[in-house]
Nucleic acid binder design. Structure first.
Length: 476
RNA sequence: UCCCCAGUAGCUCAGUUGGUUAGAGCGGUGGACUGUUAAUCCAUGUGUCGUUGGUUCGAAUCCAACCUGGGGAGCCA
């Protein structure tokens, strides 16, 4: 009787993906390790066990004959979730559904499921809400596994896309002492004793005693920081976690999410709109090519158009539209909206949905929004009332990208800061970029989880990140 | 934070003009059958009916508050 742990140095280990892809010759003996998905016994004297290891969507079928010494004592007791190391030879499958399978010569149980009745991941359909309560076990499900592989594929494709175009990845800080980024509520970072706060004479908290000697927060955006590198290395991007302490309870918001923010020197709004379009097409194509197995699953079980709509996006030019024109379209369409459309107000979700889902039926780029509803740093257009801002709206998810040309003219930037009552001193280093060798530049922010949700067709953003954080929920 | 909906078996849900012993499918378990493949067939167990309080002779069912989840809105990525 040999033992998996002591013999592992002499074995050929294989992942399920390679076995199913035919990378081994029939007759090769190898070891596959993974978790049992299902077991079916045949009175012909064999058991069929599906073993998955995460390397691809499908599990490998291992065929265990009843001549194995532990057949009755162990193999027939295997249940969903058990971990196993299976030694066997590759054979052409006699059954349908797979080309190759493993004829077992030795099967070692590494870990039992102590009570199959209580194992939460039963081999049956579960709701996403239920699976969310088991964030530590849901990775073993088909759907979480598929999401994980697609998410990884997208992340790799994003890095590859930028690398191929000469962009540098900049790690912008996660902790910031600027509370004036203007993009939402911030999480405080502090080492002060909450029960015994140091106070100033006027009763306010004395943050000079805090770790950084001043108030500190988790970042809500790397943009302001990454602009400094764009104004030196020309083409840069961030890809990292972002935090918003907003009390948002929706299927498309997280308190902790990942964001990709390219920033391009010497670029205008149309340049980055093109960049956004090229990037989305590039990563969609990568997923279609590299994760066909997982995408088939999404098309079959999650969203029937999951594959076809990506193909359509890849093959067609994005529709570009000015905010002003969009307002006219919304005013003149025969659809009745709950909220009226007026030039100068922000578009409501229902308006964005109509444009992306009904008017175009594909992602749409909206550009040149009214100045008064947008952030201080956005470049003012010569019409005196709009800024060079854009949103990329997708059917189902809504906004997945928000971007703009940045105001590079110091006098115009200062005027906006004053109009919006933002303290100039807080932006001294940001203003320095405009004082010393300023250049036109532009960029955008892409919500990574929203991208994953759009690609997979998953309806809730909490199911496309391993451990979602949202108001009142930070378990695991 | 606001509006709407839901909470009954391990899971998904049915069950309300208030009435005795609470129902199905799936999963689990036992068996039959079978190169099976989310197999099929037979058998089988399981319930503080979200919590607290109220109305009532009597509450899963009606009322109130709270908790949790979902959908929508706002904020945005």
């Amino acid at each position: 009787m040999f033992n998996y742990v002591s013999w592992r140095a002499f074995m050929t280990f294989a992942v399920v993906k390679d076995i199913l892809a035919g990378k081994f010759a029939v007759g090769d003996t190898l070891v596959v390790r993974g978790w049992v998905r299902t077991r079916r016994d045949s009175k012909a004297g064999i058991s069929f066990i599906n073993v998955h290891d995460g390397s691809c969507f499908d599990a490998v079928q291992v065929v265990a004959p009843n001549t194995l010494p532990n057949y009755e004592a162990e193999i027939q007791k295997l249940t969903t979730g058990c971990s196993v190391a299976v030694t066997g030879s590759v054979v052409a499958s006699a059954g349908q559904g797979q080309d190759f399978e493993l004829q077992v010569s030795h099967l070692e149980v590494l870990g039992w499921v102590e009570d199959p009745d209580t194992y939460p991941m039963a081999p049956k359909r579960h709701s996403m809400e239920y699976l969310r309560e088991f964030a530590h076990l849901r990775p073993r499900t088909n759907v979480a596994g598929a999401v994980t592989r697609v998410r990884h594929c997208l992340a790799q494709a994003v890095h590859r896309f930028f690398h191929e175009r000469g962009f540098y990845w900049i790690s912008t800080p996660i902790i910031t002492t600027s509370d004036a980024e203007g993009a939402g509520e911030l999480f405080r970072v502090s080492t002060l004793d909450l029960m015994n706060l140091p106070k100033n004479q006027d009763g306010s908290v004395n943050f000079k005693e805090d770790f950084f000697g001043k108030e500190a927060f988790l970042t809500v955006s790397g943009q302001l920081n990454v602009e400094t590198y764009a104004c030196a290395l020309s083409n840069v991007y961030t890809f990292g976690p972002t935090f918003r302490a907003e009390n948002s309870n929706t299927s498309r918001h997280l308190a902790e999410f990942w964001m990709i923010e390219p920033e391009v020197a010497f670029a205008d709004l149309d340049d980055v709109a093109k960049l956004a379009e090229d990037m989305l097409k590039y990563v969609f194509k990568a997923v279609l090519e590299e994760r066909a197995d997982d995408m088939s699953f999404f098309a079959e079980r999650i969203h029937k158009d999951a594959i076809t709509r990506l193909q359509q996006v890849v093959e067609n030019d994005f529709v570009h539209m000015d905010y002003t024109d969009a307002v006219e379209i919304l005013k003149n369409c025969d659809k009745t909206f709950e909220y009226p459309v007026e030039w100068g107000t922000d578009l409501q979700s229902e308006h964005e949905r109509y444009l992306a889902e009904e008017h175009v039926g594909a992602p749409i780029i909206l550009k040149n929004y009214p100045r008064d509803i947008k952030a201080f740093y956005m470049r003012q257009n010569s019409d005196g009332k709009t800024v060079a801002a854009m949103d990329v709206l997708t059917p189902g998810i809504g906004e997945i990208i928000g971007g703009s040309a940045r105001e590079e003219r110091l006098d115009l930037l200062d005027r906006r800061l004053a109009e919006m009552n933002l303290p100039k001193e807080e932006y001294s280093w940001y203003r320095d970029l405009r004082r010393y060798g300023t250049v036109p530049h532009a960029g955008f922010g892409l919500g990574f989880e929203r991208l994953v949700a759009y690609v997979t067709g998953m309806q809730n953003i909490r199911d496309v990140i391993p451990f979602p954080r949202s108001p009142n929920n930070a378990d695991f």
